[in-house]
Amino acid sequence: MSIFDDKAIARDIIMDNYQNPHNKKTLDKENTQSKHMASDSCIDDITVYMHFEGETIDDVSFNGIGCTISTASTSILTDLIKGKTKQEAKTIIHNYMDMLDEKPYDPHLLQEAVIFKDISKSANRIHCATIGWRGAAALLGEKIDE
């Protein structure tokens, strides 16, 4: 039993990341890569930015319009993968996707991102919980289908 299983704590983390999202800005360093993620089924419209130093994600951010779930999940993602190597970040993202697919995953890698595990039960919100993560995956050269 992790503290993230507590619904009230999960809710507060989402609230906090929605109202005060981390790394929500346009990254304008030289050689920044970006991926625009616009949904044709909902209103989320965000861009994920990454800056690499060799194999390391030196900086990562996002900007745009999104609902609570997409904003909070992308905010948490940026905290998780900043400073990680590309390979480490890919592993984290794959674990997250596995969690939402109700497959085995490593909760230690995902830290507070595990609060989104129940989203898999709300079919219409899975998209929101993954939009930023799929954008990040694309910047890492991974294609993740919805």
């Binding site: 999960a10 989402i14 609230m15 109202q19 609570t68 779930i69 989203i119 709300s122």
Partner: peptide
Amino acid sequence: LEKCIEAAM
């Protein structure tokens, strides 16, 4: 907002 997030969870 709290209730909306709870509903999503």
